[in-house]
Amino acid sequence: MKITLWGVRGSIPTSTPETKMYGGNTSCVQIESDDTLLILDAGTGIQHIHFNDNLSHRRIDILLTHLHNDHIQGLGFFKPLFNQDAEVHIWGPASQTQTLRARLGRYFAPPFSPIYFREFSCKLILHEISNESFDIGSINVMANFILHPGPTFGFRVMAEGKVFAYIPDHEPALGSKGLIENPDWLSGSQIVKNADLLLHDAQFTAEEYAAKQGWGHCSMEDALKYASILNVQHLLLAHHDPDRTDSELDRLYHHLKESQTSDMPFAMAVEGSEIIL
């Protein structure tokens, strides 16, 4: 399974020289296994994904963890949506009030967008999902709702005997006592447990999180603890705060490394990096 990180920034893209090394594009991860291609989230990072005119992958599956702007902002710029030879499947959280098409359609319409949803000329198939598992080609995906404002998924992606867990937006420590150190009482534990690699929200420091509880995100310290409780093999800290410079991320990484109590390997996610599981 090949994993490419095309966007690891949180909330809003950045383009300053000070954020160039870790990258400024918002959430988007590409996964390839055999002939299957998945794209997790359609943040601005999706603009990096190019296909030739013949579309080596005729079918493309885009799995949206949720519909916050930083996870769908790149969708309207994804060229296969305008290619009538392409078959694009978009998977997103079901709602009891509106269809996925209706909710995405609110974004792809004036005044927010010059392009209407109906103008996508590819063969477009929408899938509304709930807590469930499903196969896409050679890849199995488990989706579970996790703690974040609005219906939001974590995805457990399984292929070639490996597990990649993806939870870019998550507040597992929400509550007066913070993280509950029992996997049964941890949001997303089914997605994350024993994963070979976890990409997890780490937007805040512990100090920042104290002032931003309920915003739907996680501190770096809690992300490390969470991954350790759930026996993750490798952790990537992501959804970097848009104000966080490269040098600050480096400094925070070293600080976390010095204070880490487990021996679980971890790193700050870097845009453009490729990982083979």
Binding site: N131, F145, I146, L147, L174, G175, I180, P183, D184, W185, L186, S187, S189, Q190
Partner: peptide, 10 residues
């Protein structure tokens, strides 16, 4: 594991 609705109630 409990669903998030139970976790949030706790």
């Amino acid at each position: 594991p409990y669903p998030i609705e139970i976790i949030l109630n706790r």
